[in-house]
Structures are given as structure tokens and as C-alpha cells.
Amino acid sequence: MKRVLCLLAMLATLVLLVACGQQPANQGQAPAKQDINVRLELSKGSALERIMQRGTLRVGLEAGYMPFEMTDKRGNIVGFDVDMVTEMAKAMGVKLELVNTAWDGIIPALLSDKFDIIASGMTINQERNLKINFADPYIIVGQTVLVNAADADRINSWKDLNAEGVTVTSKLGTTGEQAVRRMMPKATYKSFETESEAMLEVLNGKATASVYDLPMLAIFYAERGKAGGMKFLDEPFTYEPLGWAINKGDPDFLNWLNNFLRQTKNDGRYEAIYNKWFGSNDWLQDVQ
């Protein structure tokens, strides 16, 4: 009888708690956790939404890769990539913020939300794609070779660089460096912080050749290499598509970027920007 009375008392207490809007502790925790998870999911969203709310498109790049991004005489960052993201910001109706970042830290900076997108002549490859996503390629380049004057007669192909006694230079952390290590293992490799340093090493006769992207070597050869007796092997020996990089898990932003690229290639904007930077060397006088 006492047991029945105790059970009735407990039941009455439970009914009273429910009537007063209270819940036992173990029942109240789960909904709160669910609410937090929902709020977290909503706060993530797409980078595109955050860009629109912020009113600014933040672009990560390293100014020093001609003609994609570089600093002019007035201290402004200019180039092919800069013009493309300027059009991108216009299409979004937001302001543009360029975040100049050292190349070896540019992917970590994207992952830690220092900016929304990388637009810095970045080659799409499988290693990078494990960490970040790429939009469709906006231009195709490849590795080429610039040979010093002393070795111009004996180096006729990139294959000739894969030999002992040969010293090859490139920029640290680039696909040029990867190509040398992978395809020229017998050569001595020297890495540099900038492309210019790597090419000057060859011009000054301290290295046999420099391996780097076609546009950059073509510019250096036209400016200084040809007069210095260097040889330019201008046929790319690698296939390297360049693409804009964003954080993973954002299909909305990726979709927008691909549609933006498709639109600019069909309405004349892309062609005009391409011809400005690759169809003429007039811009060189403003960056020297």
C-alpha cells in the first residue's frame, strides 16, 4: 500500500512539473543541443552569403607573379587576376579587398577565413585539391625553361636538364619546383623565395636553367634574357590549368564562380582583360 501511495505521489509531482512548464533535466538537454546544432548550421551557410552580408569580397593573392598580380609604380596591385576579381566584385555588387599574402601561407590563410577566395595564378592539382576546391580553369599555362648563355648550345629540351652537373632553379612551393623534383631528379635543384631571384641566378651564370610558368619566363626573356644571350624553350612540357580556389563544402559559391566565368567568356569581358595583359607588353612600363 505504501508503495502504491509513493508511486501516486511521484506521478502527481510529475504532472505538476509539466503543468508549470518544467521538464526533468535529462529531457530538457536534448532539444537545447539540437537548437545549437541548427544555429551552427545556419551560421555556416555559403561564403557567397557572407560576402553579400559583409558587402566586401576578400581576395587572397601574392603580388609578384606577372602578369597575373604585381605592384605598379604607385604601389597598387594590378594584373590579370586583379581585373577578373574586380569584375567579380562588380557582378556581386560589393567592394573588393585584396589581401596580399605570402605564397607558402596562402592556403592556410584561406582555411582560416582570412579571405573568401584565392585568385593568384594557382595551378589546379590533386595535392591542393585535397584541402580546397577549385572553380573551372580560367586559363591554361605550363612549365617552360630559360637557359643561361653559357649552356644555350647544349640544352635543347627540358630532358637535357635531367643530368648530373646541371643546376636548375625555381620558386619555392610552386608547380615549377614540383616539376623539377619529379622530372629532373639527377639535377641539382635550388629554390628561391621569388621568381625573379630564380631567373637572375641563371642570368648571372650561377645556374644552368630556370623552370617556371610560361607567362613569367616569357616576360623575363623579353626584358633581359634575350639581350643577355639566354635561350628560351617556350614550348610547355606540363599541362597546368589555373583556377580560383575556395573552401570545401560550398557548392553555391562554386556554382556562382563557374557561371561568372562562363558569362565573362561569352560577353567579351574576359577577352578584353586577356588581351590587355597577354596581348601587349604596354603595361610593363607601369610596373618597372
Score class of each variant (00 low, 15 high):
K90D: 01
N133P: 00
K131W: 03
I246V: 15
I139W: 05
E223P: 00
N100V: 04
L261N: 10
R50S: 15
L200W: 13
N148D: 15
L146E: 07
G28T: 11
K186C: 03
N204H: 08
D81C: 10
D72I: 01
Q126R: 14
K206L: 03
I155K: 05
A89C: 07
P215Y: 12
E69K: 06
K171L: 03
R224N: 12
A245T: 11
E62C: 05
P108S: 05
G64H: 05
Q53S: 13
S280T: 14
K206F: 09
E177L: 03
D35Q: 13
K33Q: 11
F220M: 10
R74A: 09
D286N: 13
N259F: 08
E193P: 00
I36E: 04
K248C: 05
I155D: 14
D234H: 08
L200N: 13
D81N: 15
I36M: 11
L233S: 08
L98H: 09
E62A: 04
N129H: 08
K90M: 01
M84E: 04
R182Y: 05
G229Y: 11
D116A: 04
A152W: 11
G79H: 07
K190C: 02
N133W: 11
M199D: 05
A119Y: 10
W283Y: 10
K131P: 00
A207Q: 07
